[in-house]
């Protein structure tokens, strides 16, 4: 694929932006800022996709991520541990293992990128990527495309079932609780002291405004 020096410079800047904002996602003090850092990282990758002539995918990435990260920011506010990022926040566990796993993952995949031999078959200039994708989705791969739609519908139903307060025949959690030892009593096998002990280990404050 032939491209000018301008594309190379743009790629370098966008790659730096994607990695730096991606790293800041897990290092910032505010969870809302984290979701917007992730959005910036996704948008940088979307622009790189457009540079690679996959215009449809790049623009689809913008639209999808703009909406997804806005929704995510709302959930971040709901589950926020540190409102407005006013305090330093470090909510990690097993950090050494996690850093090690991340570095090992990068090294293994990077070694594959550097040392594996991939065929050199760039996109031909005459190909219209959007048209070919459209023909594929509504042609040979229609079953795959439609299956994705069906799975999304199943997801919607599952999400409503999971997050619904009450089921058709009473409280949503009713079937998952053991019956009481006497009729109408509290669920068996769940002493109250245990529950209090479980919640006591991890104190953090929830602020709901």
């Amino acid at each position: 694929m032939n491209h000018g020096i301008g594309v190379d410079i743009a790629f370098l800047l966008l790659a730096t932006l994607a990695v730096v904002t991606g790293w800041r996602v897990f290092r910032t003090d505010s969870m809302v800022r984290a979701s917007f850092f992730l959005l910036v990282s996704f948008i940088a990758v979307g622009v790189i996709m457009i540079l690679l002539a996959a215009e449809y995918l790049g623009v689809a990435m913008f639209f999808m991520m703009a909406v997804e990260m806005t929704v995510m920011a709302l959930f971040m506010v709901m589950f926020m541990m540190n409102p407005a990022g006013l305090n330093p926040m470090n909510m990690v566990h097993q950090e050494r293992i996690a850093i090690g796993a991340g570095i090992v993952g990068f090294l293994v995949l990077g070694a594959m990128a550097l040392f594996a031999v991939f065929p050199d078959q760039p996109v031909s200039a005459s190909l219209d990527p959007v048209k070919s994708l459209g023909n594929e989705m509504l042609g040979d791969s229609m079953l795959i495309f439609e299956s994705a739609g069906l799975v999304l519908l199943t997801t919607m139903i599952g999400v409503v079932v999971l997050s619904c307060h009450r089921g058709r025949y009473g409280a949503a959690a009713e079937g998952s609780l053991p019956p009481g030892l006497e009729p109408g009593g509290d669920p068996a096998g769940k002493p109250e002291e245990d529950e209090e002990e479980e919640g006591g280990g991890h104190h953090h404050h929830h602020h709901h405004h």
């Binding site: 790659a15 994607a18 990695v19 991606g22 790293w23 996602v25 897990f26 969870m31 984290a34 990282s41 990758v45 790189i48 690679l52 995510m72 959930f75 971040m76 589950f79 541990m81 909510m91 990690v92 566990h93 097993q94 950090e95 293992i97 996690a98 850093i99 796993a101 991340g102 570095i103 993952g105 990068f106 995949l109 990077g110 594959m112 990128a113 550097l114």
Partner: peptide, 24 residues
């Protein structure tokens, strides 16, 4: 491009393993 993808995947592995909050 693959190195950039590897870097993003590595950061993602770190985040998924280290964060305590479900949303993070």
């Amino acid at each position: 491009l693959l190195l950039l993808a590897a870097a993003l995947i590595g950061i993602g592995i770190y985040g998924a393993l280290s964060q305590q909050s479900f949303v993070m």
